[in-house]
Design a protein around this nucleic acid. Structure first.
Lengths: 344, 344
DNA sequence: TTGTAGGCGTTATCAA
DNA sequence: TTGATAACGCCTACAA
């Protein structure tokens, strides 16, 4: 469409040089107040907007931190983002939020963004499953991987990680369910080939059962189909229906996400199975909906605020810290067991 | 951190000119296969990534369409985005998803992005409440406003809008509730000063009541606090608790979003009020959770797939269409009333 | 306080 | 098939 108006056009219209316009735009002090006003008015009048590509290109550095989030529909991250943003801004940096598609490579995206926006640092929220160590090396700015239990290799000087111990917390949840008398606990978990939290939470479940002298049973461990790849309410619902119609006896459903637990509750309700009277239900993560569902759903909550704070702290340490304080740190937070109405 | 490696470095290492490297990167046909391989290998080896700012700056046009979404935690948009993306990509364009913060000006963002990425078109999902007509004029590429009932002024040649008729649909929902025998319907709605869907849906409610010869009652119309500004489960919960403790008698709660309806259900449950036996509940929008809640929640569903398809179609019309086919079009979709367990 | 000119990393044009 | 070189729009010395 119409030709784009540039800084030169504005300069010409005002009868000044481009650098004067630039000074006006960027609030430089050394500029006459009148010319400044004239320029600003002209800019307003013609609707001129500086071209960001040119700015980014020229700027040798910015004060920007990017947060890359995988999955747009994950309520788990929503308020973490708020907290992270606030803290980043308070520290004097500006903040960019970038969605990463499910099948997209987040490190790739980060590397592009680093160059494009001259980033100072990167925060990964979710995603980052199995990345070969060398991939991280492409990133030359400091980064923190948050809510994913990755191991940052020794050699990596500019990375850190924040998460809970998924395996241990899942074991605790299973122990809790066992302590409430449940013996045949069905597990709703990730696809078989999962290498991330699904794998860890499954391991915790198995470990707890074995610790209690119970043999894990294949029929009780329900993996979602590989193509689902998403911890949605609907997937939990479907898996539970299949579980029910499989005829396997179970007295509790433990889903590795609260969203799936919601789906499970609905499926049980429709089958006339009362929660918690006939069957217990437990979730994982501690998102809001579990609190408002009827019955409210027992869960293990990740300390999102603390984790968010820590994530930014680790990044700032690396950015501002004198030496290796923030180097290669991996911070594990304890999660919080929250018994609710869905279990006895 | 480390100096960024540029196209010139790669050229030097390969003993070729920069333009040859550029050709290799951009899959130009006129390049010797061997040099191409050499260059690609070198790029791989040194982890070179072209600087996007420079590319965008130089490129005179792209084939990119941007989708701007307001509010990260709105489940309503999640699958609309999927559909829109798929269709955009299928039409041979590339796709950018941009989050817009609640207090951010989406048109401003769009204008910046248009220049920065040389956009071909823009889709607004949500947001866009009361913008003076001239704001849209800053946008020189075609755009479509989706799910918001705005009026694109006659003079505007490059805009279109897709939505439901919020007022009419809200009236229908209220009519439906009246037809089920509810007489004292409490409304959970937007802040008093809302000028968008909240206003429309309130108007529909009022119109239905008056049509039935019922005088609207101030005590039954609950506006959320101005600072809430978000149609969350928690807000619905709080508003309903206040409604209950206000002592006003009501036999139904109609929330203008499904999320708020969920909160309402929980508040009623905690107060020992049975849904639907003692009180009906209805929501709006037709998001998934309403289907899986216990009781499942009566709602009026927006036809998200059709609206998504239409949104892209309207944009493509303007992009490819010979003449004024897509000009100044406003498309209103009918919504679908879905009675569920939460009403008699 | 202001203007001129050079360069940021690419791509595109043109000549070789 | 290649390589110089001129933009792209902006910022920033440096000079005035």
């Amino acid at each position: 469409m119409g030709e784009q108006i540039t800084i030169r056009d504005i300069a010409k219209k005002c009868g000044v040089g481009v650098s004067t316009v630039s000074r006006a735009i960027n609030n430089h002090p050394d500029i006459n107040e009148e010319t400044r006003q004239l320029i600003l008015d002209t800019i307003e009048k013609y609707g001129y907007v500086p071209n960001n590509s040119a700015r980014n290109l020229k700027r040798t550095e910015s004060q920007t931190i990017a947060v890359l989030v995988k999955g747009i529909n994950n309520p788990f991250f929503a308020d973490m983002i708020r907290i992270i943003e606030k803290k980043i801004v308070r520290a004097g940096y500006s903040f960019i939020l970038q969605q990463v598609e499910e099948r997209e490579d987040e490190i790739e995206t980060a590397v592009m963004l680093e160059k494009e926006k001259r980033l100072k640092g990167v925060i990964f929220l979710g995603g980052i499953y199995t990345h070969p160590e060398q991939d991280f090396n492409k990133l030359t700015v400091p980064f923190v991987v948050s809510t994913v239990d990755v191991t940052i290799p020794e050699s990596m000087k500019n990375g850190a990680a924040v998460s809970i111990d998924d395996m241990t917390e899942s074991k605790k949840m299973t122990d809790y369910l066992l302590s409430r008398g449940y013996r045949r606990i069905a597990l709703l978990t990730a696809p078989v080939d999962d290498e991330s939290i699904g794998k860890c939470r499954l391991a915790g479940y198995l470990s707890a059962l074995r610790g209690a002298g119970i043999d894990p049973e294949a029929g009780l461990i329900r993996h979602m189909p590989a193509d689902a790849q998403t911890y949605s309410v609907e997937v939990g619902y479907r898996m539970t229906r299949e579980l029910i119609s499989s005829g396997v006896f179970f007295d509790c459903v433990y889903a590795i996400s609260d969203t799936m637990a919601v789906g499970a509750c609905r499926a049980l309700y429709e089958a006339g199975i009362k929660v918690p009277a006939d069957c217990g239900v437990a979730g994982f993560d501690g998102i809001d909906i579990g609190k408002y569902y009827c019955p409210s759903i027992t869960t293990v909550a990740q300390p999102r605020s603390e984790m968010s704070e820590c994530t930014v702290d680790l990044l700032l340490d690396q950015l501002q810290g004198e030496d290796a304080r923030g180097r290669n740190r991996k911070t594990i937070f304890p999660a919080r067991q929250i018994p609710r109405e869905s279990t006895l």
